[in-house]
């Protein structure tokens, strides 16, 4: 019996390495009253990219589940109940559309582009996205994730070869290493830089604004709260919504 216990314990430990983001998938509430004319958004289930976790709740109350866009598509595919899907890139929205998970046309509602951040005191004496990064502790996103792919693009556009000390799977982990002062510099999105406030110094990356990440929003097919979903999308795309998004560092929904 002891042996068995040890085996189980070890098996648990091995598998207990766990993922990062916790997602609570809210239950759809059964309030399908047909007279809900002024559709509130309180009951609307919104699956949104993790970077929207501050801006969205400020725009409208709803039941939120924030996670990486690709993980959210996986959950939708698995039949998770949701009304609205907001993706941090076109690729994952396209995937959701081709999987038949989306109702109607997705709408572009915000953009986000990369910037260079250093700790506030800039210990590596970085002067910008240039050769001052050589030999410094640079942290970027891994090429496997969207922000890493974008990083490679801007590096190429600027004729730079990056030699990072770490390639993280999440842009927030890049930011964390910079704000902790562990890294000399990191490439993060404007929204991440904005969220760090005066803990970081921000440098613009030439050309980054021309090729931004695009944020798309759409209703989910078979949404339990279809009306509320439309209402939510309207709130996000209206000027008030856009202003809130801008406050958190997002760019305008103009570029394709």
């Amino acid at each position: 019996m002891k042996r068995f216990a040890a085996l189980l314990a070890a098996a648990l430990l091995m598998t207990g390495c766990g993922g990062g983001a916790s997602t609570s998938t809210p239950e759809p509430s059964e309030s399908s009253s047909p007279v809900a004319s002024a559709a509130g958004t309180e009951d609307v289930i919104v699956f949104a990219a993790a970077s929207l976790n501050k801006a969205f709740p400020e725009i409208a109350p709803a039941k939120y589940s924030f996670d990486g866009s690709s993980g959210l598509v996986d959950q939708l595919q698995g039949g998770a109940p949701a009304d609205v899907f907001a993706s941090a890139d076109k690729k994952n929205m396209d995937r959701a559309v081709s999987e038949g998970l989306i109702e109607g046309e997705p709408v572009l509602f915000a953009t986000n582009y990369l910037g260079l951040v250093t700790p506030a005191d800039n210990p590596g004496e970085i002067t910008g996205f240039d050769s001052s990064l050589d030999g410094k502790k640079l942290v970027i996103c891994a090429a496997d994730v969207p922000c890493g792919a974008a990083t490679l693009k801007v590096a190429e556009a600027n004729g730079l070869t990056l030699n990072p000390v770490s390639e993280e799977s999440k842009v927030t982990d890049v930011l964390g290493k910079v704000t902790a002062g562990e890294a000399d510099a990191g490439l993060v999105y404007a929204t991440d830089a904005a969220s760090a406030g005066d803990k970081v110094k921000v440098f613009d990356i030439p050309g980054a604004e021309d090729d931004p990440n695009t944020y798309w929003i759409a209703s989910v097919k078979g949404a339990p709260h279809a009306e509320g979903a439309t209402e939510f999308i309207t709130l996000v795309t209206e000027p008030d919504g856009a202003a809130t998004l801008a406050k958190y560092g997002f760019g305008p929904a103009t570029t394709e």
């Binding site: 040890a6 070890a10 430990l13 091995m14 766990g18 942290v139 000390v165 770490s166 390639e167 993280e168």
Partner: peptide, 25 residues
């Protein structure tokens, strides 16, 4: 069994490494 447990825990170690050591091939 204690050594095996410790080895297994090290092998599965994820969060602390990601937070503290970074991730480079």
């Amino acid at each position: 069994s204690g050594t095996a447990l410790a080895f297994a825990r090290s092998l599965g170690e994820f969060g602390a490494t990601l937070t503290f050591a970074g991730s480079l091939q």
